[in-house]
């Protein structure tokens, strides 16, 4: 399922004294099966863009196509609900959405809202709990007695239980420790590879973008200023710094080598890519002896 934006504008509270334009003429495609990263400074319009992905808001101009559904400003709000099953959004600090008496009930909440039967929802809950790395003993516990990291996983399971085709993640690792971050990003990678899930990752962490994404969209003040594969987008370190975006650690390190005189065809973005490049250098040095 593709998601397409065609000349999308969005204005908050149009025709009032508080009017504020957030998105300007956005054109983008999130292809089925891709892993797209959306990056941009705070205030660039990332959250607004996100809310269009499952029709939580409608564009004030232009068209958003989600699969075979078309959303324009005049679209009736009544039938937008099924879209939210297809495109699941995990908001930042998702543990804030937990409310049920047990973990099992909370995970089943989403699917039940979309008409899934009680038994099916329960088995989905058990399945998704395992997917996020928690065992069945958690099912009957209250979500509020869990640790922060565990609560987050339960919340994510609750979104996965809706069996979306596209999974949108808004800073999913915010506030986690390095181990937690690693486990979480690896889990999403597994979902992407094993289940072919389309992933949209909104993040500040350029290393995650470099390690996982196959497509990057850069937003600034509501406009797309660059988009393409990570290789292309992260080539110019000065540009990244000027836009106040982070730089993948490997690229910034490689830049130091470049300043010493080393040459790279493309700046490597990960430790592995850098090691590969250096390997060539080491071999040459070995041959020179």
């Amino acid at each position: 399922m593709d998601i397409r934006f065609e000349q999308v504008d969005f204005t908050y509270q149009p025709n009032t004294p508080f009017e504020q334009r957030a998105l300007f003429d956005l054109n983008l495609t999130i292809e089925d099966g891709s892993y797209t990263a959306i990056v941009g400074h705070t205030g660039s319009g990332k959250s607004t863009l996100l809310q269009h992905l499952n029709a939580l808001v409608k564009p004030t101009k232009g068209t958003v196509r989600i699969g075979d559904r078309t959303i324009v400003p005049e679209t009736n709000n009544k039938n937008l609900k099924p879209i939210r099953k297809k495109v699941g959004i995990v908001f930042q600090f998702p543990e804030a959405q937990l409310f049920e008496e047990t973990v099992a009930k909370d995970i089943a909440f989403g699917p039940k809202n979309f008409g899934v039967s009680e038994e099916d929802a329960a088995s989905l809950a058990a399945e998704m709990l395992g997917l996020v790395g928690l065992d069945a003993s958690y099912l009957e516990r209250s979500p509020f007695e869990l640790s922060g990291g565990q609560m987050r996983r339960v919340a994510i399971a609750g979104v996965l239980a809706m069996e979306p085709e596209v999974l949108v993640l808004d800073e999913p690792t915010a506030g986690l420790d390095p181990q937690g971050r690693k486990e979480m990003m690896e889990m999403f990678q597994r979902l992407h590879e094993e289940r072919g899930m389309t992933i949209v990752l909104v993040t500040h962490l350029m290393d995650d973008v470099a390690n996982y994404a196959d497509h990057v969209i850069v937003l600034e003040k509501g406009k797309i200023v660059k988009s393409g594969i990570p290789q292309e987008v992260f080539q110019n370190i000065d540009w990244l710094k000027e836009k106040q975006l982070g730089v993948p650690t490997a690229a910034s390190f490689a830049e130091k080598l470049v300043n010493k005189g080393m040459n790279f065809d493309h700046l490597p973005l990960t430790a592995d890519a850098l090691a590969d490049e250096l390997l060539k250098g080491f071999k040459k040095a070995g041959e020179g002896q």
Binding site: L257, K260, G261, F282, A285, G286
Partner: peptide, 8 residues
């Protein structure tokens, strides 16, 4: 890295 790779 600089000394190992290029100055051998």
């Amino acid at each position: 890295l600089w000394t190992s790779v290029l100055n051998k």
